[in-house]
Simulated scan of single mutants.
Amino acid sequence: SIEASSLRAGAEGGLLTPGLTNGALLAVVLAGAWNHLLPGVPAGAAAIIGAGAFLAASMQMPLTAVVLIVEFTHANHDLLFPLMLAVGGSVAMYHGIP
């Protein structure tokens, strides 16, 4: 028989939704501040990218974060490169790589 502990994916339960929410909220606030200087940053795109970056760094699963964000939002391919760039930057900053 397979034990329940062997089926764990490594992520702690109950952290997915708060991680997405915190990342999206922080990104929308920063996009609002950025739009005062240089208008043109869509808040929705910033929320999606921020949610993915925060989730990748907080749970240490960058590829999973990208796949989850793309699957959850059905984002088109135009958003994939900025999302991957933000995820890479957030994970690098988490590890202290400048």
Rank of each mutant, 00 (worst) to 15 (best):
G89M: 09
A4T: 00
L38N: 08
N22K: 10
L16Y: 03
F72P: 00
L80A: 14
L15M: 14
A9N: 11
A51T: 04
L79F: 01
M93D: 03
G50V: 02
V70F: 10
L80I: 11
L38D: 05
N22A: 12
G96D: 05
I97A: 04
A56D: 08
L30D: 14
L85S: 10
F54R: 10
G10R: 01
A46K: 01
A9R: 04
W34P: 07
I69E: 07
P39H: 05
H36W: 09
A57W: 01
T21F: 15
V66M: 14
N76W: 04
A4C: 01
A65F: 03
P42L: 02
A4W: 07
A9M: 04
G89T: 05
T64R: 05
P42K: 07
A33V: 10
H74C: 05
L15G: 12
G88E: 06
V67D: 15
V41F: 02
L20F: 09
A51Q: 08
G13M: 11
G50A: 12
L83H: 09
F81N: 13
M84E: 02
G88I: 03
M84K: 01
L83Y: 05
L79Y: 01
L83K: 10
S90H: 13
V66H: 10
S90E: 12
G88L: 01
P62M: 11
T17F: 08
A92V: 02
M93N: 12
F81Q: 14
H95C: 07
L38P: 00
A33S: 11
L38T: 12
G32D: 06
M93C: 05
V70W: 04
L55Q: 10
G88N: 06
L38A: 11
L25N: 13
L85G: 03
H95L: 08
V41W: 02
H74E: 15
A57D: 04
N22H: 08
